[in-house]
Design a protein around this nucleic acid. Structure first.
Lengths: 118, 118
DNA sequence: GATCAATATTGACATACGTCTATGTCTGGT
DNA sequence: ACCAGACATAGACGTATGTCAATATTGATC
């Protein structure tokens, strides 16, 4: 279990199931989780995350990602920005190319919150 | 692990981590997962799910849910419909009252798909 | 430093979404 | 039968979202 800002305290998470299912989450918790779910709640972005995660070395160049979709380059760039802004993707520029990598701990936190060991 | 339409075959899920992270998911998989994430990607609906799940007997009456928010009754009704249509909530009418219950297996499936054992 | 290739940004557009008020539909009690 | 209360539906309205074409920016190369 990671120690991101999303997880609750151990005593809260250990009892029976995910915090979401165990007790009414606060407005603040809901509003911190929502942007991550919003970022994931799009078929293109889901596939982007998936393709990046499954790529050689856990990262992928934007140029390869563009080729994987029937969408314009700005549209892919936009989706990558949404994912990056949400904290789901890391960005690293190397030369002319930009590589994105999935922040698996964040994804794992989201999963643990909504239904982990439900 | 449940056997909902969301899970992949055992051989696909067992290898290393969630299907999303292990290999590029298909468009169909992405489009089947997206509506669930969309349904969850709202602070009010997240709290609705949470309140219902944490309620006595795992279900809650709409009347109680209305009281938990500073929103109009139709708005809550709308959010409950979204969650129900997505397959996240079960609905049962008893007399004048309507009770909703969280389908935990579905939630668990979503969690397993996006980051389970990442 | 001019040029080219890889990404990002901007602005426009149609559609989707969250919310409300007003109204409809049940159901139980009088 | 009627009424009252619980919940759903319809319609309207502003805002957010996904997409594109056009343009800007950045970095490598000649």
């Amino acid at each position: 279990m990671s120690k991101s800002h999303l997880t609750l305290t151990p005593v809260e998470t250990a009892a029976c199931c995910s915090p979401l299912l165990r007790e009414p989450i606060s407005l603040e918790h809901a509003e911190r989780l929502t942007p991550l779910l919003k970022a994931l709640a799009d078929p293109v972005r889901l596939r982007l995350v998936s393709i990046v995660a499954a790529s050689e070395g856990g990262e992928a160049c934007v140029c390869d990602l563009n080729d994987a979709f029937d969408l314009s380059q700005p549209t892919i760039s936009h989706h990558l920005k949404v994912l990056h802004d949400a904290g789901l993707l890391d960005r690293s520029k190397r030369g002319v190319w930009v590589y994105y990598a999935v922040r698996r701990e964040v994804l794992a936190d989201v999963a643990a919150l909504i239904g982990g060991s439900a």
